[in-house]
Structure formats: C-alpha cells, structure tokens
Design a protein around this nucleic acid. Structure first.
Lengths: 105, 105
DNA sequence: TTGACATGCAACCAAATGGTTGCATATTAA
DNA sequence: TTAATATGCAACCATTTGGTTGCATGTCAA
C-alpha cells in the first residue's frame, strides 16, 4: 500500500468532503455523492478514483451502480507514523476531554 | 487551526521525511535537517515554513540558529475525523498485532 | 571589527493538479 | 427494442507547486 497515494489523496478538500460524506452515510453511489458536490459528475468521479487508488475507498459494483465504502485503515497508519504508543493515549484523552467540554456550552 | 494547511503540508514526501527526521531526533536546526536532504537549503527552508504554518512543527530561535520540534496534535485530529471511538481501539489492536508479527520474521 | 556561518526573501521555471466539455459504454425499465 | 439513467474515458486549460539561483540580513568567534 503506497502511503504517498494516501497523503496526496487527502490533500484535496473535495476528497476530504467525500470521505466525510461516506463517514456519515457509507455505501453511497457516484450520483448520490455528486448531489452534494458543486461540480461536474466527471470531476467527482476523478476524485473518487484517486481515493480508491489510495485504498481509502473500496467499491462494489451493483448492476449499473457502484457503491463506495470508507476504509479507515490507511488513516490509522498515518497517526501511528508520528505518534508514539504512549502519546497516543494521552492525545486521545485530551481530545475526548476537549470535545466533552465543547459539548457543555 | 486550518486543517487544509495540515493536509497540504503532509502531501509532500520531502515534508514527511522532515517529520520523520524530527520524530527520530527532535529540536534539529535547519542546517542539520539540510544535511539529510538532497536539495538546496532554500528548498528545505520553504518546506519547513509550510510545516510550521500548518502547526505541525514549532520552532524556537536560539541565537542565529532555529530549533524545530514536531507537534503531533494535528496528526491526531486527522485520525479522529474519520475513525470512530470504537474503531480506534480495534484498529490499533490490529496494527499492534501486525507489527509484532512482522518483528518475529 | 572582520570573516564565517545560519537563516530569510524574491524572482523565475518546469511539471503536476483540478476542473471543464464531449463522447462512449452499459444496464434498467417501459 | 428503445429511452433514460449510471458510469467511464479522453482531450484541453488555468493555476498551483516544488525546485532552482542570487542576494540580503543577522549572529558568533577570532
């Protein structure tokens, strides 16, 4: 699995939005994803191809449609690259606390 | 903190290598980091500026030198964006297992 | 002070990137 | 079969990106 493909795929805001959309509702089809994007279907298809190439999205053909699923594994590997095992727990605890405090506003 | 800056900063292999270098030895100066890179000092300085702008690297001036330190917080936020709290533990367990198995070869 | 070293700033250029339009293919439903 | 729908492929173009060279500034040591 090429990590370069993963990082380049994540570099574009449109592709991150696509991942957000799949994170919210997994298994969406190309045209469903297009509905939320403000660009041509061809452009969206290109972005999805890049995400698929990076193994961040897996697809299943269903007849003339194609379902898209988010794959979180490469994203986890990013964190592991620069965050030590101990730091990991500390950072997650901090982040969880921050979120809880934000929710109390 | 702009996440777009973080993702664009991570998109380049040279900048990831710089983070690797700081992960291995934190607090390095510009010329120290240049020694490992196969490009001009100016190019490396540009990359470091981008990492600093993204808040992935913090710097402290020491006289005529400038020390660079890796900041893991934005990287942790990436993982939290697309990995649920439950998945997180599962993925880390899987990843730890994989690493342990690889080490046994 | 003077010379050497560490860093900063700017102009320039080739290559990559993200979007468009146009057309082709394949599947479902009437 | 035929029309509508879902996706695929390719050419084209403006902008961004990553590198270079050249020069300026600032600090330490002799």
């Amino acid at each position: 699995m090429s990590m370069d493909a993963v990082f380049r795929a994540l570099a574009d805001p449109t592709r991150r939005q696509l991942l957000d959309s799949l994170h919210a509702r997994n298994g969406q089809t190309l045209s469903a994803l297009c509905a939320e994007m403000d660009m041509t279907r061809q452009a969206v298809a290109k972005h999805l191809a890049i995400l698929e190439e990076a193994n961040l999205v897996a697809t299943i053909r269903k007849g003339r449609e194609k379902e898209h699923y988010l794959n979180p594994v490469p994203i986890n590997e990013i964190a592991e690259r620069w965050i030590g095992k101990f730091e990991r727990g500390r950072l997650n605890a901090l982040s969880d606390l921050k979120k809880r405090l934000e929710r109390e506003d």
